[in-house]
């Protein structure tokens, strides 16, 4: 009924036991089984008993780094995938996390399954185990083994993942996973596709998409690298513009969020995952990441010492 990946989960639990025992960490942030098939939920372990609920498997999608700020004064351990670790780099760079205050267990990640996508081919409730390889996703179900093409099983970002293994960690959970060679711009496919349209077509596209936006700000709330105590872009609850969802206010919010994320977005697309109305936000943040690269040669999440591109200038540019 629930996906297990016995071996790595057990190793993880063991590691966390040791962290607690040796006093390296007071809490550990990881995943435990969620209430529904193929779903996990963030789990904050504070004891050995808590640690025994931890899991690691190809459904662990959440970027846990967004919860780190709640444990600022504690010694904290955390489990991060490749993409999550890039957020950690930004948070350390932007002084939201102290590197020496966090113990990082890096999880080499073969890709995470998208439960909605899988549900198109298999009833998730029947899946008992998942194994992700480069070329295929193998599901063990009540009815036997099923093999799916990764494109029919994984989150889109995992198909073009350039960093399955974290750069930044104290220890790794399992062996590093080799990067699959992907075309240079593959990660920005959605953005590039939109770039092909005319300006007017793009406006029409976003007008339609953003018309769905309820200004719930879940995208901002889930973002691991959005750390402001209060978002300057979010309208107050009682603002009539928020209630009316005025077009200009919605455009302004998303465009400005894209600007704020330029040089900061690490491409986890948690925003898109949590969007209740399915706005293709990843396209926006692909654009932000792409411009950061094209204009300034800067890639967020890769180097703690790199100065953000809008906080510096090159040779008179």
């Amino acid at each position: 009924m629930t996906v297990v990946n016995d071996q790595l989960t057990l190793i993880l639990r063991e590691k966390v036991h040791t962290l607690f025992a040796e006093g390296v960490a007071d809490v550990f942030i990881g995943y435990r089984h969620g209430g529904k098939p193929l779903r996990v939920q963030p789990h904050v372990a504070r004891s050995a008993a808590d640690a025994d609920q931890l899991v690691w498997n190809p459904t662990c999608i959440n970027n846990l780094t967004s919860t780190l700020h709640k444990f600022a004064d504690m010694r904290v351990g955390i489990l991060v995938k490749g993409c999550d670790s890039r957020a950690l780099v930004e948070l350390i760079k932007l002084r939201q996390v102290r590197r020496d205050g966090v113990y990082i267990i890096g999880a080499p990640c073969p890709g995470i399954v998208d439960h909605e996508l899988i549900a198109r081919s298999v009833d998730p409730a029947t899946i008992t185990d998942i194994f992700v390889e480069e070329a295929q996703v193998m599901l063990t179900t009540d009815a036997g083994e099923i093999t799916l093409d990764p494109a029919d099983a994984l989150y889109a970002k995992c198909l073009t993942c350039a960093q399955p293994t974290p750069d930044l960690y104290d220890e790794l959970l399992g062996d590093p996973i080799a990067v699959h060679p992907i075309p240079l711009d593959a990660r920005f496919n959605a953005a590039i596709e939109l770039e092909q349209l005319s300006v007017a077509e793009r406006f029409a596209f976003w007008d339609e998409q953003l018309n769905k936006c309820t200004l719930c700000y879940a995208c901002q709330a889930v973002c691991p690298v959005c750390f402001c105590t209060a978002c300057a872009l979010a309208l107050p609850r009682n603002d009539p513009k928020r209630k009316n969802r005025d077009r200009e206010s919605v455009f302004s919010f998303h465009l400005m969020r894209a600007y704020h994320m330029t040089g900061r977005c690490i491409g986890c697309y948690e925003c898109e995952r949590v969007c209740p109305v399915d706005i293709p936000l990843s396209a926006i943040f692909q654009k932000a990441e792409k411009e950061s690269r094209d204009l300034f040669g800067y890639k967020a999440g890769s180097d703690v010492a790199a100065v953000p591109p809008l906080s510096t200038f090159g040779d008179k540019t």
Binding site: L94, R95, Q96, F227, C228, T229, A230, V307, P308, L310, S311, T312
Partner: peptide, 13 residues
């Protein structure tokens, strides 16, 4: 200070 997250973006520029 109540709204400042101390990110330090301002410091360098």
């Amino acid at each position: 200070a109540t709204h400042c997250a101390g990110c330090g973006i301002c410091v360098t520029l």
